[in-house]
Design a binder for these strands. Sequence first.
DNA 1: GTCTATAATCGGATAGAC
DNA 2: GTCTATCCGATTATAGAC
Lengths: 191, 191
Amino acid sequence: MAWKESHKQESRQRILLAAAALFTRKGFNNVGIDEVMESAGMTRGAFYAHFNSKIELYEQAIMTAGITAAQRFNNNAVDHMGLIENYLSEEQLNSTDICCPMACLISDVAHDDDRVKDIYTRLYKGFTKHLAKFDNSDCDDADNNEDKILMQSVVMIGGLALARSLTDKALAKKILRLSSKAAQQLHTEKV
Amino acid sequence: MAWKESHKQESRQRILLAAAALFTRKGFNNVGIDEVMESAGMTRGAFYAHFNSKIELYEQAIMTAGITAAQRFNNNAVDHMGLIENYLSEEQLNSTDICCPMACLISDVAHDDDRVKDIYTRLYKGFTKHLAKFDNSDCDDADNNEDKILMQSVVMIGGLALARSLTDKALAKKILRLSSKAAQQLHTEKV
DNA sequence: GTCTATAATCGGATAGAC
DNA sequence: GTCTATCCGATTATAGAC
C-alpha cells in the first residue's frame, strides 16, 4: 500500500506547485480551485482529498512558493551579487512561473488575516537570513550588518514588486536596474 | 435645481472617500459594496446612481486615495525630509484611514488588468514628480538626480508595504526606521 | 483517490416604490 | 436620488458513483 500513499503525496505536491505559480501571479481571488486543479492535471472533486479549504491551500502554497523561489535563486546564483541580479532580472518581470511571494504578494498579504501574515513574516525572516548567509562582508559591526541586510531586502522586494505593477515597461526595467545597483552597493560598501 | 446636483456630488465624494479608505486597507475583494455604502452613510441601492460597477469605483477610488494621501503628506510636511518621515511613520502602519495606494495596493494592482495598472502607473509618476519637486538638491546631473528619486520611491513604497505585511511589529518598525534613514540619505548625499 | 453532479453561499447588479 | 427586495452568476464546498 506504500505506493498509494506516495501517489497521494505526489498529487498533493503537483497541486501545491500549481497553486504557488497561479497565486503569486494572479492573486488569491483571481484564481479558482478549478484552475488550480486543472493546472495540476486533475479535476475539482479531488481537491478536498488533499486540503480542507481554499484558504488552507493558499497558506501552504505561499510557503511552497517561498521555498521553491529560494531554491531556484540559490541554484542559479554564483554569489551574493548574482543572487541580487537574478532576483531583479527582467525575467522576473513577466514570469508566468512561481514568483517570489515576498514581492508578488506583498500587499495582498497585508489585507489577509494574521494566519497568512504570520506565514509571510516567517518567510521574510528566512529571506533575510538567507541574504545574510550569502553576505560575505567582513564588517565586524553585527547590528549595522543586519541593518544593511534589511535595507537590501526592502530594495529587492520593493523594486521587484513596483516594477511588476507598472504598465510602462521601460520605467519598470529602469527601476529593476537601479534597484539591483543599489542593493549591490549596500552589499559592497564598508561601514 | 442646482442644490440637487451638488448634493449628488457630495454623496459621490463620500462614497469615493469611504471606498479609498476601505480598498487601500482591505483590498478590492475583501470589501463589498454594502460596506462601502454603509461607511458612506447610504445603502446599496443608491450605489448605481453614481457608478456603473464595482470595478469602476475601484479605479476612481485608487485615484482618490492617491490624491488625498498626497495632499495630506503635503500639508503636514515642512520639507523633503519631513515628507519621508511622515510617509514612513508608525502612524502609517495600522492607520485605518486612507493609505497611500502606491504601497497599500502594490501587489494587488499587479494582479489586476491593465486599466488598473495604468492608473497606478500614472499615480506613481505623479508621486516621483512630487518627490522631485520637493527635492532641493543642487546636483547638476539631471539623470543621476532622477535615479535618486526613483530609488527613494522604491525605499519609501517598499519599506511601508513590507512593514504593513509583517506581524512582528518590532521588526516592522525597524524597517520603517531604516527605510526612512536610507531615503533621507539618498536625498542628502551628493553625487 | 478521483471523478461527475449538485448543493449552498456570497456578492454584484437590477427593478420598482417612494 | 435613495430606499428595500430580488435576481443571478460565480465559486466554494459536499455527496455519491467508480
